[in-house]
Amino acid sequence: MYLQIKEIRKQFGDKVAVEKLSLNVPRGAIYGIIGPNGAGKTTTIRMIMNIIAPDSGEIIFDGSPIDETFRDKVGYLPEERGLYKKMTLIEIITYMAELKGAKVKDIMPKIDPWLDRMQLLDYRDKKVEELSKGMSQKLQFITTLIHDPEIIILDELFSGLDPVNMELMKTVIMELKRDQKTILFSTHVMEQAEKLCDYICMISKGKKVLDGSLSDIKSGFGTNSIQIDIEGDGAFISSLPGVERMSEFNNYIELQMSEGADPDAILQGMVGKVKIRRFEVVEPSLYNIFIQTAKLSNEELEAMETNNA
């Protein structure tokens, strides 16, 4: 294993933020840590980054415990983002790279292509304070990657990004994967994880509830879900016999069937009441898997839904 996290634990005051968490991240994989806000994702990542020390447990990178040298091999994009406002783009990129131990002459030729790629080339010699929020995000993304890190850790990468930039980031991530880079990222939006990740670790209230490769996880749950696409008020569907839970997403509804339920009967119950555009029996989405596994309270469920809808 490339990055191994062994039973790390962190407590702040009386609150246990991370409880005996273990992870195994293989080289060249895209690994997603998912869970609702406050589940302990950022704390876990900060411990990997050696920003805060775990109370117990250990973190092993490439065969040896993480130390000073690890800092230079990783590209880290924290959830809390910021850059020096008074520096120019070119200055801040070189400064960040130098802090990672890179030599200016090595990174100089890479700066312009990166800026071009992120549509920031025109701002090359402008100050950071002149950038819009989306632009600063992209700039920060460049500073994370400019020193060609072996492992990339992205905390809530997609938060605050518009759809165009989100696609841009996804493309870059897929390219990094092609270059055999290891990517670890966290998100509370499960759909994103589902589209990107090879491996997933779900955490809730500081504890791991599930982990493994995406395909293993999904197949482990069988095909107990139905995705539907309807016109009209579908509120009654949740009370149909055989429907355990109903989750509404932007453009579809996912139903989780109770054990032994018959999809045909559910379809029957819907016919005539709403217009059905699509009805598909599928593997459950990560979101539903999470809901089924984490056993959340009603309040937590509500919070999850507002975040994922």
């Binding site: 980054m49 050696n50 920003i51 000073e68 800092r71 230079d72 990783v74 880290y76 924290p78 809390e80 983002r81 910021g82 850059l83 020096y84 406002k85 960040m96 802090l99 990672k100 920060q140 500073t143």
Partner: peptide
């Protein structure tokens, strides 16, 4: 300023 602009976290992930 480094605290408020949140650049601190990036800094301490690169240097001690």
């Amino acid at each position: 300023e480094e605290k408020n602009s949140r650049i601190m976290e990036v800094l301490v992930s690169s240097v001690s």
